[in-house]
Design a protein around this nucleic acid. Structure first.
Lengths: 257, 257
DNA sequence: CGTTAGATTGAGCACGCTCAAAATAAGTGG
DNA sequence: CCACTTATTTTGAGCGTGCTCAATCTAACG
């Protein structure tokens, strides 16, 4: 291979979506990219509906999502379900469980998926060899907190319509941060029950709210796509703030190797 | 100073509550303890009601709480307030904001406080010198996610009484993890408005629920103390799971220095 | 073409909200 | 130490969002 200009990087087949995502935040060195690629050997397929692990399981692995959607969910009194987060391409799953023995939530495939599993032990090695990656992992896992805070804010004391608006906007923002394109049509492969369990409403009520929002020309929804017709209207309704565009790396240590 | 047996550590005046907390999870080496102590120079006092920073501020610091309570809160449509987390002795505040430029939530002192501020830059240095501390910081910040998940679960689709039960239990669990003692009387310096804003209920409704719970002999509350009379009853009501007892350090890199 | 998961619609109910006023407790200055 | 102000709690009355239960309708898929 001919020598390349140092700043130029072109995605190849070997680029995983996770490397791609990290690289959006940071100019990864070759050795850093290698380290990450090591974590992503052995991708596996899972069918929609598969439970990757269950709340309370002793999980010693982390997951990187290559394709598809997964849900973090927990069960409430009376068998009700609370969906905590959605995970898609480029996401790291399980960071929040790393601090404890037991998984705080179940992970369920919402669509067919391609996923890499790696032992959390490997993370320790990465922390030694690549302090800058440690910092990046730290930051990325913080986004999880932010996302949860935002969901919490939406659920706190806002009416149903605002909750849904917030959910749609936050999913769209995360998708857009991954794809780079700003499309009003967002693929959201979730049922009305899923949406309800995410924002704390019944499926029936979600149905009625979606109809209302459709009448008000805020959104359209069929099957697994939601179209944001009046994005400003949705923002006004839900006070949504997009935070997923960039990462502050000013405090990061320098790259190793 | 005469040489000590290596495993023996006795708390001294120089032990900060943060060192103390980290040391509960991990057997810190002297150099690790020094590194942390460096972060905790210059403690400052803040009166109850002081806003340490406001949602959206460009914050370049992290906080370590020595004494007192602080709240993370954000404003919703209509001026309503959502309290996201409570912070007390030994807590690290601001980790979740480190990934982005702007603070995702305001920090307000709920009582008089003693707090140390240190620049996030210092965290980068710690990540290089002490990979094991990096891993520990990573884990501790994950507890934040867990805590938020738990609050989310409680708010999702459970009735008011269960939300309050969950809140009381989770605060008690965190306090107990710090103090080490298991006392049914828990000091919670929050008003009914605060409680309501934390669990997504109005102050008026909180009042009524507390009265009900008192009649059912679940709790007692006056001013700033809550007594958990029937802890099992509260657990049954809210499906609370205590996760704050220990940290899984099996994946941590070895100590440096 | 039958089966099943998901969406739609209706009727009645209740939990929690709003508005409002009074009572109690906690601070503050003379 | 009392009079005053301010924060917090308590209680009431009426209303509405969102729930439950239940039935029907639609779309997907083997």
């Amino acid at each position: 291979m001919p020598p390349q200009r140092p700043q130029y990087r072109r995605p190849t087949l070997f680029d995983s979506c996770f490397v791609a995502r990290l690289n959006r935040y940071l100019d990864l060195t070759p050795s850093e990219r290698d380290a990450i690629t090591q974590l992503e050997r052995d991708p596996k397929n899972y069918a929609a509906g598969t439970t990757l692990w269950t709340e309370g399981d002793d999980v010693s692995e982390l997951l990187i999502v290559h394709q598809g959607w997964a849900l973090s969910e927990t069960r409430l009194t009376g068998g009700k379900r609370q969906i905590l987060r959605f995970h898609f391409s480029g996401d790291l799953i399980g960071a929040s469980g790393i601090a404890f023995r037991d998984a705080p939530a179940s992970i369920v495939a919402a669509t067919d998926m391609v996923v890499c599993r790696f032992p959390r032990m490997a993370l320790g090695e990465t922390f030694i060899a690549h302090p800058r990656l440690a910092a990046l992992f730290f930051s990325i896992s913080q986004m999880e907190s932010i996302d949860l805070s935002d969901r919490l804010r939406a659920m706190g004391r806002s009416e149903g319509k605002a909750r849904l608006a917030n959910l749609f906007l936050s999913i769209a923002a995360r998708m857009r941060a991954v794809t780079g394109e700003h499309n009003p049509v967002v693929r959201i492969p979730l049922t009305q029950s899923d949406l309800g369990d995410a924002v704390g409403l019944t499926q029936v009520h979600v149905n009625r709210l979606i109809r209302q929002m459709t009448e008000e020309k805020l959104i359209t929804r069929n099957r697994s796509t939601v179209t944001l017709l009046d994005e400003q209207g949705l923002v006004d309704l839900s006070r949504f703030v997009d935070r997923f565009s960039s990462v502050d790396s000013s405090w990061f240590p320098p790259a190793a190797g």
